[in-house]
Design a protein around this nucleic acid. Structure first.
Lengths: 145, 145
DNA sequence: CGATTTTGTTATCAAATGATAATTAAAGAG
DNA sequence: CTCTTTAATTATCATTTGATAACAAAATCG
């Protein structure tokens, strides 16, 4: 298969992934939370506890802007800052109970929509999908490292 | 495999896809083009000719805002509006020569980065990846319909 | 034909985001 | 101990984006 066609296939695929994730996640964002804030909360939920710099790096948001958004989230009692004993410049950030509850609810909705989407797949097909995810994750979409 | 783990796997995967596409496409956006404008140009490039409503629907941008951004792009001579004979309300939009050249260049850069990313894969692995793309595209990320 | 729907435009406003400079405090290097 | 680097904050500004209302013209429906 020629590179050109392969590349086109990948572009089409990533576009589809973006569209589907948009569909799965639309409307789950709670009132009063901006898109950027939600994406930060999502990141914290998955990787907590994290430092401010980590959020800044991974989400490609400058430190000042990360600090600003995190301050707003903290004021809304959605996350907490914990001092780090070894390095007193750093702060570990994690979701508060309220923030955790909020994100659980959001993930639950997304999960339901996802299950709806694969509900017609047999056990064998799910296995196949799972293997496909492994292949692509390890051979193409391996961001880490 | 339980649903919970399956869902988690998918979340991790889509996150990776987003990160990788960000890496592949960062810095390719030409000077003076905003992110939203670039995403519109990308969509036109792949699907041209398209109507304004199609752009609005597919990119989830309201008609007024789509119209505004398209006007700016037209003023920059990056795309053209063609009248439709059968329905004089509609306009078909496509890239101008300059716009096409610009997007070709952008896609070329992305293509190079992509090839770099899969350069260590054998022919068999590429076949495997291709099949995995087909599986996921048809069974999970099938946005159309 | 008249009413309604579709397609697109213009204008305007508010909110979200991005970018930068200046500052603080702690850690680490020499 | 001084100098430099790292982590984070605050303040400020311009740009981008989203949202809404009001409008116009063509198509479609009954």
């Amino acid at each position: 298969m020629d590179k050109e066609a392969f590349f086109h296939k990948l572009v089409t695929f990533t576009t589809a992934v973006h569209e589907v994730t948009f569909d799965l996640t639309k409307d789950v964002r709670p009132e009063g939370i901006t898109p950027v804030q939600y994406s930060i909360l999502e990141y914290i939920a998955v990787s907590q506890p994290v430092t401010l710099s980590q959020i800044s790096d991974c989400k490609n948001i400058s430190m000042p802007n990360t600090s600003r958004e995190l301050k707003k989230l903290t004021e809304k009692n959605l996350c907490e800052k914990l001092d780090v004993a070894e390095d007193r410049r750093k702060q570990m950030i994690r979701l508060s109970d309220a923030g955790q509850a909020m994100m659980n609810k959001a993930f639950e909705q997304i999960g339901e929509r996802f299950l709806e989407r694969i509900k017609d797949s047999s056990t064998e097909e799910l296995e196949e999908i799972s293997r496909a995810l492994d292949v692509l994750h390890s051979k193409v979409f391996n961001s880490g490292e």
